[in-house]
Amino acid sequence: MSHDLVVLGTAAASIGFFHTLLGPDHYLPFIAMSRSGEWSLRKTALITVLCGAGHVLSSVVLGLIGISFGFAVSRLQIVESFRGSLATWVLIAFGLVYFIWGMKRALRNRAHTHLHEHGCRTSHGHTHDHNKEHVHVHKTDGNKSMTPWVLFIIFILGPCEPLIPLLMYPAAKSSFFDLWLVTSIFGLITIMTMLGIVMSSYFGISIIPTAKLERYTHAIAGAIISLCGISILLFGL
């Protein structure tokens, strides 16, 4: 193994890790949606891995096309920039729509009082909400079933910015094996980092008492997702 390949492999692992860690959009949407959608551990892990794979592979395919046809890196970066902007706005829009839907659902299910009158001219009231009573209805809600697909599409649109210019093109100058190895290292580290953060948060949040916020979980998830997109626009995360 050449010295250049060792350097590129190390760079791929480091960039993959820090690129994911410093980009909250790589994991916060899954943490938020797994909580609000009451996803199982298996479902959360599966969706995270699939979205991570789609995120990496979309840039890999674009990079391979560029390398095969001899396109300049600058031309591919224009495409990646457009994809990034599109994914960001879709993320913000999805978060806002989900937030609005979540708030409507929370307000509809807020605690309220019913008065009951009896024949002896007495009455009494009791307060309750419908969060638990109507769970069987909301489990089949279309918003929930479509959420994984929406996230998957967003992550396919979202580019891995450093992959093509910093890793794929330099590796391709040596051999196809170098290109494959460097790309695989970057992709594997990226997905493992996403999965590690999401799984840690999944178990961490499960031990935090959130009963009082239960009916706002969808709205909170939407706000978090939208804020992830806004942070990308403002800070380039």
Rank of each mutant, 00 (worst) to 15 (best):
G16F: 04
F17H: 04
F18H: 03
H19W: 01
L21M: 10
L21A: 08
G23V: 02
P24T: 11
H26M: 01
P29C: 10
P29D: 09
E38V: 11
W39M: 09
L41F: 14
T44I: 12
T48S: 07
L50W: 13
C51L: 07
A53W: 07
L64S: 08
I65L: 15
S68Y: 11
G70S: 09
G70D: 12
R75W: 07
L76H: 01
S81T: 11
F82L: 13
S85R: 12
S85D: 09
S85K: 05
V90F: 13
L91F: 07
L91Q: 06
I92V: 14
A93P: 10
F94C: 05
F99W: 05
I100E: 04
W101V: 03
W101Q: 07
W101M: 12
G102R: 10
G102Y: 09
A106C: 11
L107Y: 03
T113W: 08
T113D: 09
H114W: 05
H114R: 08
E117Y: 11
H118Y: 11
G119A: 09
T122E: 12
S123D: 10
H124D: 13
T127L: 03
D129Q: 00
K132V: 14
D141K: 08
K144I: 12
S145N: 12
M146G: 13
L151E: 06
I154C: 08
E161W: 05
L166N: 06
A172M: 04
K173C: 06
S174T: 15
F177D: 05
D178S: 09
F186M: 02
I191T: 02
M199R: 10
M199T: 15
Y202I: 11
G204N: 07
I205S: 11
I205H: 07
S206L: 07
I207Y: 10
I207R: 10
A211H: 09
L213D: 08
L213N: 05
E214A: 15
A219C: 12
I220F: 07
I225R: 00
I230H: 02
F235Y: 14
L237A: 12
